[in-house]
């Protein structure tokens, strides 16, 4: 308990005595809110989060067995995927 109090005070005193550090902490907090709230929740949902592990396996296997080349078809802006069978 003594140690915990000591560590707590160490951090408290440290934060209290900061000068430029206050600005930096504001930057860190704003950045983390943007990254974890705005970006993660609204823009970066894992693409396969709605699938079960079995469904993920099947989905990825299907994707792996559908060859996709990186060649550009000039007329359509699409790349052709030619099945191997």
């Amino acid at each position: 308990m003594y140690w915990l109090t000591k560590v707590f005070r160490f951090y408290c005193d440290g934060f209290r005595s900061m000068t430029i550090g206050r600005t930096l902490w504001i930057i860190i907090i704003v950045k983390l809110v943007i990254i974890f709230v705005l970006l993660r929740i609204f823009f970066f949902r894992p693409a396969m989060s709605h699938l079960s592990p079995q469904e993920k396996q099947n989905h990825v296997a299907d994707e792996l067995l559908q060859p996709k080349s990186g060649l550009l078809n000039e007329s359509s802006g699409q790349i052709h995927v030619v099945p191997i069978h």
Partner: peptide, 11 residues
């Protein structure tokens, strides 16, 4: 059989 994927997605 021919299917396609948008190359701009990769880019």
């Amino acid at each position: 059989m021919l299917s396609s994927v948008d190359v701009s997605l990769i880019d």
